[in-house]
Nucleic acid binder design. Structure first.
Lengths: 190, 190
DNA sequence: ACATTTATGTCAGCCATATTGACGTATTTC
DNA sequence: GAAATACGTCAATATGGCTGACATAAATGT
């Protein structure tokens, strides 16, 4: 019933058939923009549902995820990666510490640092979330040739700012692809 | 200086070299998960900067975008697409109406409906944002063969929930790929 | 040794965006 | 005429960002 009107209205203008009023859609990537929006929405949605049952939000997820993935992360690094302020991080981090998902350890060389590590409890939750999201990714990549999967990866990598003020994670993404060993800031300079 | 410690800590554990404490990382897609996070962050970041100068946020962007792309969208449809509540939409939509980016028209068949349309002013802003994001996508896809681009698109499509309660946009995504004409809810059933 | 810088934490308050619940109003439908 | 629908809105609340200010401990520089 409602569907009748829905369908009447729901023909995308720009990428579709109509001549498009003003400038038409010269080479604009409406399709990919939209696909990214929905893909990401559903991708994070997987985790959101689980997190809700823990009384956590996306902020907790991001913090716990990166701490788990990069054990010994400094608070400052985390701030750089997440691009949020100390104060914003403070709240969520405190919760994760209080509830035993993360622990802090004094830095060896620099005792001002509070290096962050996920506890077993934290690792368990992260793994659960990663497993969920992996299932979606696996399903999406089902039937893809190695070349096609590689193309997807290359695309995502190329979508990321190279020249960002991150320092930290941009290097990590250089690593994340397979360089894993060398700790140097080389590579990933396109 | 800080980089020394950074590099010491920043070896990803799961996908990397270490044996990984507990379960190891059996087939988990850490890399793609991370790539998606950063890719999306930077992708929406493009628009965020522009929107800031207009006093708008992401919420405004999403509303304006979909109204522009699917002229005549009903309020209820928009709520379904964005997955937010009427109240949340209300504020943002009111601003966009007040400032002349969007107009409402009574539905022909059903005069209770307020069909939404972007004004020229609204279209201009949307186009600017889409152009920005298109530039990033174009850059990312530079040098991709048609088959590789297609793989990227297929991946993104496959990441989206098929069985979602959206009705609306899931059909649109069926359309968005090229079916554009038929208004039927067929296709895209994997 | 003392001053400065750095790494971190924290207090207080603000803003944007989301939520739920309740209610109002016009319009369509049964 | 009653009920359901499409939409708007009021009020209260939560989350996750933000800025500014200030505190403490440890490292660093002169």
């Amino acid at each position: 019933m409602a569907d009748i009107n829905v369908n009447a209205a729901l023909n995308p203008v720009q990428g579709g058939s109509r001549p498009a009023p003003d400038a038409s859609a010269q080479g604009l990537r409406w399709d990919i923009i939209e696909l990214l929006f929905f893909a990401y929405r559903d991708f994070v949605g997987d985790a959101d549902h689980v997190l809700e049952t823990f009384g956590f939000g996306r902020a907790h997820h991001r913090v716990l995820y990166f701490v788990s993935r990069y054990p010994g992360l400094k608070v400052a690094d985390l701030l750089g990666v997440l691009r949020i302020t100390k104060q914003s991080l403070g709240r969520v981090l405190k919760q994760l510490l209080d509830e035993g998902y993360i622990v802090q350890k004094e830095g060896d060389a620099d005792r001002r640092q509070r290096l962050l590590y996920a506890t077993a409890k934290g690792e368990t939750l992260v793994r659960r979330l990663v497993t969920l999201q992996t299932a979606r990714i696996d399903a999406a990549l089902a039937g893809f040739s190695p070349a096609e999967s590689a193309a997807v990866r290359r695309f995502l990598r190329a979508m990321i700012d190279r020249d960002s003020p991150d320092k930290v994670l941009e290097q990590l993404l250089g690593l994340a692809q397979g360089v894993a060993q060398g700790a140097g800031p080389q590579e990933a300079k396109e």
